[in-house]
Design a protein around this nucleic acid. Structure first.
Lengths: 157, 157
DNA sequence: CTTATAATTGAGAATCTTTCTCAATTGCGC
DNA sequence: GCGCAATTGAGAAAGATTCTCAATTATAAG
């Protein structure tokens, strides 16, 4: 079994957005989705972690927070939360999918290769570049995917 | 079954590097790896495609070129070719892994979201940004992953 | 050109990941 | 509270990837 996030506990690097429970309800209800304890638990685990967590790590932590939660529900919750823009999915280098709380605004993550902690930054260099590339190549750039990898302060020790 | 590369045939957008058969042999032998027809077939399929191909598409095309080749061998060949830096693995948005010939030098791909054709560009904006981010955050940036998505000229019609 | 050897392969089994099915449950508008 | 549609849990099913092992093969050495 492969999983990311081993040993990552409550780094709280990300604020995880500023929605309070009422905001969240509204976000769900706006799309006729129910605000269920399972979905909230998945989001809470991600918020408290501040790191990219793999499905398996998430499943484990969600079961601790809300015993009885099924793996399929974790998958479904992540799908829903991603559609709502509340969590972001990434592809770690080993091919394992992981998830983190989605940052607010247009940001990109720096992922610590040791502890999977995430720090987002806003200086996206792709706006200008995209225009230039469109001019040069004729390709209409629609989207981009950018992640940086590095070693965070704590893990440099 | 999901697969990328549907209907992508011989776009020849990428040169696929300049190794001739002798160079390739040397590359393999330098790491005590054998230059087998299966490995060459996988590389050839990718070179002739110029697009990101999923495992299943690759398997299909390799079997056409070299009947009898097993799926496990395609997986193993890709692993080997990736270690040698000859092919690049990507994560398409649906989570499906795909592979393309690795570009020469430091480049990033623009992937057409319609046909999966790949065009690489060299204007990587992350050198300076990485330094700045390291100064700002203390994180030592080691690596980055960048892909652009768009619609190529042909697919805009 | 043989031969010996270690790397590689094919086939299917095994494992892991993700999705699906369906009856039972539960949030939420009324 | 009631009723209904959305959601859940559990396990089955499907899909993706890796493993096992006997048979084959590329390669270096003679």
């Amino acid at each position: 079994m492969r999983w990311a996030g081993a040993g990552v506990i409550n780094l709280k690097t990300k604020s995880g957005g500023t929605q309070n429970s009422g905001d969240l309800k509204a976000i769900f209800h706006a799309k006729r989705l129910k605000c269920t304890p399972q979905r909230l638990a998945v989001l809470k685990v991600l918020k408290e972690s501040g790191a990219y967590l793999s499905i398996n790590m998430l499943d484990k932590k969600v079961k601790e927070m809300l015993p009885g939660t099924g793996l399929a529900t974790v998958y479904r919750a992540l799908e829903t939360l991603e559609e709502l823009g509340l969590v972001a999915k990434v592809h770690l280098e080993d091919g394992c999918h992981s998830y983190a709380v989605a940052p607010e605004g247009h940001m990109h993550p720096i992922v610590c290769t040791e502890c999977n902690k995430v720090i987002d930054f806003a200086e996206c260099p792709l706006g200008e570049l995209s225009e230039k590339l469109t001019q040069d190549t004729g390709i209409v750039i629609q989207n981009h995917f950018l992640q940086l990898f590095g070693k965070c302060r704590e893990c440099q020790a």
